[in-house]
Design a protein around this nucleic acid. Structure first.
Length: 420
RNA sequence: GCCGAGAUGGCCCAGCCCGGUAAGGCGCGAGCCUGGAAAGCUCGUGGGGGAAACCCCUCGGGAGUUCGAAUCUCCCUCUCGGCGCCA
């Protein structure tokens, strides 16, 4: 959610931003219309309230006809106030609806662009392996080794679900532990949160209303299945005011994530796009001054995971048109997968400035006597599990169909060096 | 699921029965005092509108009654006890 005063004072700046992000300015126009009417009526309502407050005070001391007359007058004033309040509530709902749909203002370092083609490749790291045989795709490898079972995932849940078996399941568990350990050493505090979240949480981080169709919704209880640990972890501090010494806060969480992926049909083969996947997520709460420096650090923290796994990857700086609507700046990390010969997004590291904090009402008090201000929030995957698994299977595959286990994971698998 | 008790400013807590401008304390800040400090005293300490003066709102959320609601009525949420069920 943007600061309403920015929309009021600099509507043209917001309009330009919407254009850069390939949004229409309809919501902005609607907001401005509703807001000016809201302000006019608020003013009128305040004048009436002032009168009612003053007269109500005098009523107990009045007597007889005078008293009856004043009460009758105030009855009319109250009716008008009620009328205005009804209109104000409608206008407020319109304002609220609009402001929830206006995206964050991108940082000035974010390239202006239309879609994924305009993203900037900031760097390519690690060596792409040369194969002297045709590298297989991960699902061929996984099925041959009987470590990924798509058929049985479909049987118990439906298409888009899968089962990890044997060394596949153990590799998954090793990855989770490896990632959590690295982030722990980087200074993150591990948290394990509910995987089911309420309405106020999904509004708080900005998934609702924009992405509501992509989440599983438990109608009977009005709860959602977690789409990314960003939601429960950021909302841990909903409605809180930190003391200055509480910040910065860095959390890391491992949590299953659920996505309906409604209307998406490409890339259905394998585990690169599934309805349920594990993810390790970093979330930071910081003071506003240096949040974009923290974003660089957060991205490094995610890159450390990849470097440890010795996988080839590249870093993208997303353009204005491709960023998710609540981000002010976002890097994607993509792993190279030789079997399918393309890049897989395994991490998205974003700075949200005060956009989420404003929605979730997360503040800090810079000094005990000063007003509280909104914190800045950031998060980044470190990393998404299935796609990391894809990259490992495809990069570490051997000609005989076996898969070498990356060195850093072996301690988590009792020293095992190979799957197969 | 049932019964009971609660939710009040950054924190603690009074007011509710019996409707009339949210009392007090802590913390923090500014001022006075002091050689300096402590103590003491005064003021300030949530949100919105307004260029400002100033005004309005705010007692878990929502509806209602009333000239007027923290206070009365109804609905909902959450917390804490007790009972029940349960891996």
């Amino acid at each position: 959610m943007l600061d309403i005063s920015i929309i009021r004072q600099e509507p043209e700046k917001v309009r330009g931003m919407l254009r850069d992000r390939c949004y229409t300015d309809d919501v902005l126009n609607e907001f401005i219309r509703a807001d000016s009417e809201w302000r006019r009526l608020t003013d009128r309502g305040n004048v009436l309230r002032k009168e009612r407050n003053a007269v109500s005070q005098t009523i107990p001391s009045l007597k007889g006809a005078e008293k009856t007359k004043k009460i009758e007058e105030m009855r009319l004033v109250s009716d008008e106030i009620k009328d205005i309040d009804t209109k104000l509530a409608e206008l407020d709902a319109i304002r609220e609806g609009c402001v929830l749909e206006i995206p964050n203002i991108p940082h000035h370092s974010v390239p202006v662009g239309k879609d994924a083609n305009d993203n900037v490749i900031v760097g390519e790291r690690g060596k792409v392996r040369k194969f002297d045989f045709r590298p297989k795709e991960h699902f061929e490898i996984g099925e041959a080794l009987d470590i990924i079972d798509f058929e049985r995932g479909t049987k118990v849940a439906g298409s888009g679900f899968y089962v990890l078996k044997g060394d596949g399941a153990r590799l998954e568990r090793a990855l989770i532990n490896y990632m959590l350990d690295i982030h722990h050493d980087q200074g993150y505090k591990e948290v394990f949160t509910p995987a089911v979240i309420n309405r106020s949480a999904v509004i708080g981080t900005g998934q609702y209303p924009k992405l509501k169709d992509d989440m599983y919704w438990l109608e009977r209880d009005d709860l959602w299945l977690n789409p990314t640990a960003e939601v429960p972890v950021t909302n841990l501090h909903q409605d809180e005011i930190f003391d200055k010494n509480d910040l910065p806060i860095s959390y890391v969480a491992y949590l299953p994530s659920f996505r309906r992926e409604a209307g998406k049909h490409s890339d259905t083969r394998g585990i690169a796009r599934v309805h349920q996947f594990n993810k390790v997520e970093m979330v930071r709460f910081v003071r506003p001054e240096n949040s974009f420096d923290v974003l660089e650090e957060l991205r490094e923290n995610a890159e450390d995971i990849i470097r440890g796994l010795e996988l080839p990857y590249r870093i993208l700086l997303l353009c204005t048109g491709d960023m998710s609507f609540h981000a002010a700046k976002c890097y994607d990390l993509e792993l190279y997968a030789p079997g399918r010969d393309n890049w897989l997004e395994v991490s998205s590291c974003s700075c949200f400035t005060d956009f989420q904090a404003r929605r979730a009402r997360i503040k800090f008090r810079p000094e005990p006597h000063l007003k509280s201000e909104f914190v800045h929030t950031l998060n980044g995957s470190g990393l998404a599990l299935p796609r990391t698994m894809v990259a490992i299977l495809e990069n570490y595959q051997n000609e005989d169909g076996t898969v070498t286990i990356p060195k850093v994971l072996r301690p988590y698998m009792k020293g095992q060096k190979i799957i197969g």
